[in-house]
Amino acid sequence: MSQIPEELRYATSHEWVRMEDDGNVYVGISDHAQDSLGDLVFVEPPEVGDEISTGDECGVVESVKAASDIYAPMSGEVIAVNENLEDSPELVNQDPYGDGWIYQLKPANKAEWDELLSADDYATTLEDDED
């Protein structure tokens, strides 16, 4: 059973979102997502300054056997990317909700936060997937 921290919100496409006090959010991929991809060998984050809309493809995570797009869980401007992933993509495997964050976003519309899945709802979608 993969970890699904309570305080985060999730997209059905397996991204997680963490809201900071300043209103900006961190985005990464869930424990379930990193586990099904296997050892990551490359992460391509969006570029700082990119304006992205909910549902946009805005990056790629790549393992030896698969590559998967990262979709934007919320609209906004990319204000930082995790540069450590360039040399150490394995951080996403080791610590998907911490050191393995992928980019930071300044949301254009904070109301979108409420439309994301809660931890419980995300857990339910994972169970449904397994059926």
Partner: peptide, 12 residues
């Protein structure tokens, strides 16, 4: 880098 190729990435 096979994840770029058609047998894995298919339409992408």
């Amino acid at each position: 880098l096979q994840a770029r190729e058609q047998h894995i990435r298919r339409s992408k």
